[in-house]
């Protein structure tokens, strides 16, 4: 959870805020968590949601700040990439972009995490890729696992 939060947010302090928030949500919706067939997909979903909210809040709070206070340059770059994308993508597209570019998940895995059909993920991912390519080169090249 902390590893992913750092990857998305690019800052260790913000990542710990995210970890705190994710656990709060897990406590307050324990039944959903326990009912999930794959708890890690639930954790991914909630962590992504929390981190993207924090990222949006940071963008509003610090509109001109780049990657200051960041220990990991790669994470900072990824975080900035998401900030740029967030201005152009819908909420769902941004989730898909995060899971695809940052976490390098397969389409099946993204479908599992977001509880959407593979077909939907495939369609929206094409649009996300096109927009991402138009905006900037992704910080992490997608590693294809077949």
């Amino acid at each position: 959870m902390h590893r992913r939060a750092v990857a998305i947010l690019g800052r260790d302090a913000d990542a710990w805020d995210a970890v705190q928030e994710v656990f709060e949500r897990m406590i307050n919706s324990g039944s959903q968590f326990r009912g999930d067939a794959h708890p890690m997909t639930y954790i991914y979903r909630v962590t992504t949601n929390v981190c993207l909210n924090l990222l949006r809040a940071r963008r509003l709070r610090e509109p001109s700040t780049l990657d200051t206070g960041t220990a990991d340059h790669g994470a900072a770059e990824a975080s900035q990439f998401l900030v740029v994308l967030s201005k152009h993508l819908s909420e769902r597209e941004l989730h898909i972009a995060t899971l695809y570019f940052i976490d390098e998940l397969t389409q099946d895995e993204i479908a599992d995490v977001l509880k959407l059909s593979r077909k939907t993920i495939g369609r929206e991912l094409n649009e996300v890729r096109e927009r991402a390519l138009a905006l900037a080169e992704p910080p992490g090249k997608k590693v294809s696992h077949g």
């Binding site: 590893r3 992913r4 954790i43 976490d103 390098e104 895995e109 696992h145 077949g146």
Partner: peptide, 12 residues
């Protein structure tokens, strides 16, 4: 399993 494990699986 020919492909490598994803980050999701590694986290699991």
């Amino acid at each position: 399993m020919a492909e490598h494990l994803s980050k999701l699986v590694l986290d699991e």
